[in-house]
């Protein structure tokens, strides 16, 4: 995949002195879904605002398809659609007029069929003549997506798309995002929901205090950094862990009913075989075995707290 967005040592220092983005460099590949994870105030929204032209970078370069976002702003902005975090909509306008307005803003001629298809795709058809102030939060979120897609952008930014959205709509939105990717769009989303990143992202970036702590393929990240836990259910309770097993750093759980063993799945030797043999030697009988993997959330919390 070729690079569609190049962010090169970008900084943003606000007039208040707040250093919101620090020397951040990142390449975004064409056609991927990248999730930027980070706590509130991490600099995620500032970063995407700089790419979209809402905030001016203090230093550094941002290029979209090789074009500078400041010098060639007309071309770069034409390629980008932005779904903002806040439900910022003209309350007294109808759904369809609001979408038509957005298409016009991006220099595109009115296209009735395209707008109607978009409205249908986002399940807004019944509400097309309804004033935005009469819509629910979820519906407003759909309108924002429709507005962002109205000029057929190649790149879509979704700033906290699931904020204030119920579980059902969230999953529906994931489907919409996946379909957009199938159509060739590049999608950058910022989110608080680790579940969201795990469900739809190809790559994950973790931002904290304006710094990009890591960016990694989601699967690799989970396998590289995610440790696994082997939980051993015992046939009968034990009072303490035998000394012969001390080198495995086991944990005794459920008042002696279970043993937990942490290991790295990508290590050459996990130690599972020798552990099971040593358990047998110690005369402990097993009832069941299960494994679990560290979630992205645990990795995220671990990274941010470092």
């Amino acid at each position: 995949m070729s690079t569609i967005i190049e962010i090169d040592e970008v900084n943003k220092v606000f007039a208040t002195g707040e250093h919101a983005v620090k020397d951040l460099s990142l390449n975004i590949k064409e056609g991927e879904i990248i999730a930027l994870l980070g706590p509130n105030g991490a600099g995620k929204t500032t970063l995407i605002s700089m790419i979209c032209g809402i905030v001016s970078p203090s230093s550094g370069k941002i290029k979209v398809k090789g074009l500078d976002v400041i010098d060639d702003y007309r071309k770069t902005r034409s390629m980008i659609g932005l779904v903002p975090q806040e439900l910022t909509l003209e309350s007294f306008e109808t759904v369809s007029n609001s979408i038509k307005f957005s298409r016009g803003l991006f220099g595109k001629k009115s296209n009735k069929i395209l707008i109607e298809n978009l409205i249908k795709q986002l399940s807004l058809w019944e509400k097309r003549n309804t004033k935005i102030m009469e819509l629910s939060g979820g519906m407003k979120r759909r309108v924002l997506i429709a507005k962002a897609l109205s000029h057929e952008p190649q790149i879509l930014f979704l700033d906290e798309p699931s904020a204030g959205v119920d579980v059902e709509l969230r999953k529906e939105m994931w489907e919409i995002i996946k379909n957009l990717k199938k159509d060739g769009a590049t999608i950058i989303l910022t989110t608080h929901y680790i579940e969201e990143a795990e469900a739809i992202a190809d790559r994950v970036g973790i931002i904290n205090n304006g710094e990009l702590l890591l960016v990694e393929e989601k699967k690799e990240l989970l396998s590289k950094m995610g440790s696994k836990t082997l939980t051993i259910e015992l046939a009968s309770k034990i009072k303490s862990i035998p000394k012969s097993l001390s080198s495995y750093h086991l944990q005794l759980l459920n008042n002696g009913e279970k043993l937990a063993f942490n290991y790295k799945s990508n290590d050459e030797s996990t130690g599972i075989t020798s552990l099971l043999m040593d358990i047998k030697k110690a005369g402990i009988k097993l009832a069941d075995l299960s494994t679990s993997q560290t979630s992205l959330e645990e990795i995220f919390v671990d990274m941010v707290n470092k």
């Binding site: 605002s49 979209c52 032209g53 809402i54 702003y73 007309r74 071309k75 902005r77 034409s78 980008i80 932005l82 903002p84 806040e86 910022t88 909509l89 003209e90 309350s91 957005s102 803003l105 991006f106 220099g107 507005k147």
Partner: peptide, 16 residues
């Protein structure tokens, strides 16, 4: 638009 926040849509559009 400033008050409602919709100004960001104008600022992110390819407009001088």
């Amino acid at each position: 638009p400033k008050f409602m926040g919709t100004i960001n849509e104008i600022l992110s559009a390819p407009l001088s």
